[in-house]
Simulated scan of single mutants.
Amino acid sequence: MIDRRCFEALDKTLKDILNEPTQSFGGKSVLLGGDFRQTLPVKPKASKRDIIESSIVESSVWSHFKVCKLSKNMRLLQPNLSTKEKEEIAAFSSWLLQIGDGRVGVDDEDDPTDTKWVEILEKYLIPDHEDALKDLVRFIYDEDIFHNPTATMFCDKAIVYPKNETADEINNLILCNLPGKPIIYLSFDSIIPHTNDRGDTKVLYPSEYLNLLNFSGFPTHRLQLKVGIPIMLLRNMNQMEGLCNGTRMIITQLLPRLIQAEVITGVQIGHKVYIPRITLNHTDKELPFVFKRKQFPVRVCYAMTINKSQGQSLNKIGIYLPHPIFSHGQLYVALSRATSAAGLKILIKRQEDQPSNCTKNIVFSNFLAKLESAQAVDMELLLH
């Protein structure tokens, strides 16, 4: 997901530091891990061409990498598996790869090159009705996890969705049914006007308006929390303590100026940490000011975006699709978080002119084909 210019900057820096101008990365070995079926670099309002051009594959340093592929399904090597279980695991894995490669589904009339409508098997679906979202929540989180939450209960469960705007719908539904009175933390919002505004900006944008603003990766103005609920960190704070962007935790104590929490993901599982309020800045060329919000850099995470879930393996995952996915690899990322078919459920809100069991899958097939072709040529050169 990293922009190619980051790798190019690292390449130039290592060449300068190690005084090895002709050696890639100064002669140091660099290992990259990833899967191009998953989401590519995120660029707001970018075209397909812009996104692909930001990929490491389009960089001058890519030709110096050797591509290694995983070829064994390790889940099939688990002991004591029956023949039926092995067949189910193999079938599920094969289906996931077909989704990732865009080899299943019916072409979308508006974008037949990259978009297909995929039929989801009935065994993975939660029927869409008035209380369907509650059914999805109950599949992932049972009553015991709400009343006696522990790190081990939350670390392998989550609900994922495409857009941030869906988060409040799910989290508020769950919070309302939890015991105990919530504690509400309000942010302090301010702006730094751009130059030559003659002071008009602060008059035009009062604090009441600023409180309504929400941006990706930002906590909300009104943060409603309870002891025992899971939260996600939205900023890198202390990597040595495991406090990185995306780290999930359970709240153990709520104080006026601090949140005490227990880490439930990464290498620091079970470790207690303290989260302070910090000032977060948002710069947008379309805004006439720099936006500042002082708030705890967390959000409730019974549910998370598909992009945030990337890299995690979950025994139970619910995929909520009130709207279709909107970028390359998102559906594959969501489905492949599941460690088994039994732990996967999908709730699809019916789209106009589409069956209730169909959802959109976007795959840049030409990009993947070009990648496969380049790798095939490399392998031939190695053989010769």
Rank of each mutant, 00 (worst) to 15 (best):
L10A: 10
T13S: 10
L14D: 05
K15C: 09
T22W: 03
T22F: 09
V30M: 09
L31K: 08
G34C: 05
T39L: 12
K43C: 06
R49Q: 13
D50F: 00
S55L: 02
I56V: 06
W62S: 00
K66N: 05
L70V: 13
N73L: 14
R75H: 00
L76Y: 13
L81C: 09
S93I: 05
L96C: 14
G102M: 08
E109F: 00
D111Q: 05
D114Q: 02
T115A: 09
W117V: 03
W117L: 01
V118R: 04
E119Y: 10
E130M: 06
D131R: 13
R138V: 06
R138N: 13
R138E: 13
F139W: 04
F154M: 12
D156R: 14
K163C: 07
E165S: 14
E169K: 12
N177C: 15
S190M: 01
T195N: 07
V203C: 01
P206E: 04
E208M: 09
N211R: 15
L212M: 15
G217F: 08
P219D: 04
L225P: 02
N236E: 01
N236L: 07
N238V: 02
N245E: 11
M249Q: 05
T252M: 08
L254T: 08
V267F: 15
V273K: 04
V273Q: 10
T279Q: 15
L280C: 11
N281I: 15
D284Q: 14
L287W: 11
L287A: 13
R293Y: 10
R299C: 15
C301H: 03
N307M: 02
N307V: 05
K308I: 01
G311N: 05
P322Q: 05
H323Q: 15
Q330Y: 09
L331C: 11
A334Q: 00
S340T: 14
Q351G: 09
Q354Y: 07
V363G: 02
V363A: 06
E372T: 08
S373A: 12
S373G: 05
E380K: 12
E380Q: 14
L381S: 01
